[in-house]
Design a protein around this nucleic acid. Structure first.
Length: 230
DNA sequence: CCCTGATTCGC
DNA sequence: GCGAATCAGG
């Protein structure tokens, strides 16, 4: 797998959205957690509460023993049962107040940056009267805020009234709301625009007006890379 | 053990 | 530039 623009975009979104490297890697597919982290750093975006950063106090004690100077042992076979014996053992640290990391209300509440600067509004009317949006019109699907942890998914009263997979039929809009696997994932469920799998409103999002040749723009980034590939 | 991100460094 | 291996904190 290579880092296409879209994959990088997804990586950025999710990384900035607070998703863990593992989650991002899973979403992207075909890459490891390390690959994601490595790429994230190369892209410049880094930091974010890392468990292993509270350091930076005194000297850089106990660096890396035999990290990787030369062709050193990659995998030192045995973890050497010999422990360094000597242990300073001393930490008169001052408590030092630690204010909340302001990482709280992370429930993603972006003030909605900029819908779309100024692009030629290209709209056409589709069957049933829905308006096809132009490529520049793609509303940022703002699905962010991926759950910190995907749980097995409990039925959850959240979707009690919503259209589940089992409720789909030819008569209701199959537009997915959310992502599969998320607790509140469901479908639109509105009456379909006859002849389409979606309601009129979602037809407008599903089908785009065709631009004249030569005026094509690269496809707008999908929410999170679109369909999961697995 | 599991998880996390950070870093290194051969490719 | 990429990412496995490794490190290190929770």
């Amino acid at each position: 797998m290579s880092w296409t623009d879209e994959r990088i975009a997804t990586l950025k979104k999710m990384w900035e959205g607070g998703a863990t490297a593992s989650q991002i890697a899973e979403e992207l597919g075909g890459v490891s957690r390390n690959a994601v982290i490595g790429k994230a750093h190369r892209l410049g975006l880094k930091s974010r509460p890392s468990p292993v950063k509270a350091n930076e106090k005194k000297k850089a004690a106990a660096k890396k023993p035999a990290a990787k100077s030369t062709a050193a042992a990659k995998k030192p076979a045995a973890k050497s049962t010999a422990k360094p014996a000597a242990k300073p053992a001393a930490k008169p640290e001052a408590p030092a107040a630690k204010p909340a990391p302001a990482q709280a209300g992370n429930t993603n509440s972006q003030p909605m940056p900029n819908p779309t600067p100024d692009l030629p509004k290209i709209v056409s009317v589709g069957p049933g009267g829905f308006l096809r949006q132009g490529p520049g019109d793609q509303q940022a699907p703002i699905p962010p805020a991926p759950p910190r942890r995907l749980v097995p998914a409990k039925p959850s009263p959240e979707i009690a009234d919503k259209t589940s997979l089992l409720d789909l039929s030819d008569k209701v809009c199959r537009w997915p709301m959310g992502h599969p696997g998320e607790p509140d994932f469901h479908f639109c469920g509105d009456a379909v625009n006859p002849g389409f799998p979606y309601c009129v409103e979602h037809c407008g999002r599903a089908y785009q007006a065709q631009l004249p040749r030569g005026a094509r723009r690269p496809p707008p980034p999908l929410p999170f890379g679109g369909p999961r590939v697995r």
